[in-house]
């Protein structure tokens, strides 16, 4: 999948356990620059932990994470912060700051880094909110006043406001109705293309995965068990992926039920 060039993000042997529970058991994955990778997997399969390891929110027990060929474990604090400047993230529940109005949420990174004045931030927020289909007046609202779909849009606006070159999406359509899910997916595709960014999404929504992904990978029991084109999902020939894509009860994936 690397095509002979350095992948934007490269994972090798990524491992993480919480006490006796092994969550990541040697994840290997290449994510191509300028492409959209979707990581699929059931609940508890290690998708979110993989993402948090790349973002530096969780320290992996073992393994290599490279971004643009740089080993993240060797970065100094300043270098890590510089890398974070180039990263945007849309959290599953939005993770908007309740204490700030929407416009400050959207321009948070720019304001925190003194890259913009507060007056200019209001204009910038209006511009970015328009890109995700929201009126400028939404900027004055508190996050608590927004619906779930609007919170996702504001979260997306915050993720793209600083024009990052890597964007992570954590379950972008979870909790939304199918139409709003499709709208959010459309916005994600538009934003990623406009920025020319590399996108990494984790989801278990197959329709969403096909819409936003160029490439896809399936994680199962802490390992990547399949990678390929997102368009082929459902007809990959891999029993695990096909069962997951079709949502079938019978197959190699057995739900662990506690009795």
């Amino acid at each position: 999948m690397s095509g002979g060039t350095t992948p934007k993000i490269r994972l090798r042997g990524l491992a993480k356990a919480f006490g006796p529970k092994v969550v990541l058991d040697g994840v290997d994955l290449d994510i191509r620059a300028g492409h959209s990778m979707v990581i699929l997997g059931g609940s508890g399969s290690g998708k979110s932990v993989t993402l948090k390891c790349i973002l530096g929110l969780i320290q992996p027990d073992a393994g290599l994470i490279e971004v643009d060929g740089q080993d993240l474990s060797k970065l100094t604090r300043r270098e890590r912060e510089a890398l974070n400047d180039r990263i945007g993230m849309l959290f599953q529940n939005g993770a908007l700051f309740d204490s700030l109005p929407v416009w400050e949420n959207v321009c948070f990174k720019l304001l925190a880094q003194r890259r913009i004045t507060r007056r200019a931030a209001r204009d910038k927020a209006a511009e970015v909110l328009a890109q995700v289909g929201l009126a400028a007046s939404v900027g004055d609202l508190s996050p608590a006043e927004l619906s779930g779909g609007m919170q996702k849009r504001v979260g997306l606006a915050r993720a793209i406001a600083a024009e990052p070159d890597i964007i992570f999406f954590d379950e972008p359509t979870t909790g939304l109705d199918p139409i709003m899910g499709a709208v959010i997916d459309g916005l994600i595709v538009d934003c990623v293309k406009r920025l020319g960014a590399t996108a990494v999404s984790i989801t278990h929504d197959m329709a969403s995965a096909r819409r936003i992904g160029d490439d896809a990978a399936m994680i199962h029991k802490g390992k990547i068990v399949w990678t390929g084109a997102a368009a082929t999902l459902g007809a990959t020939g891999n029993a695990l992926v096909d069962q997951f894509a079709k949502g079938e009860r019978e197959g190699p994936i057995q739900m662990e039920l506690r009795r």
């Binding site: 948090k52 973002l55 530096g56 929110l57 974070n84 990174k109 925190a112 992570f168």
Partner: peptide, 20 residues
């Protein structure tokens, strides 16, 4: 309560990803 809510709603993680 405020910081705890920020923790359980990923707002503290969001701060880190926003270079703060």
């Amino acid at each position: 309560a405020e910081i705890g809510t920020m923790r359980v709603t990923d707002q503290i993680d969001a701060l880190t990803t926003l270079s703060t």
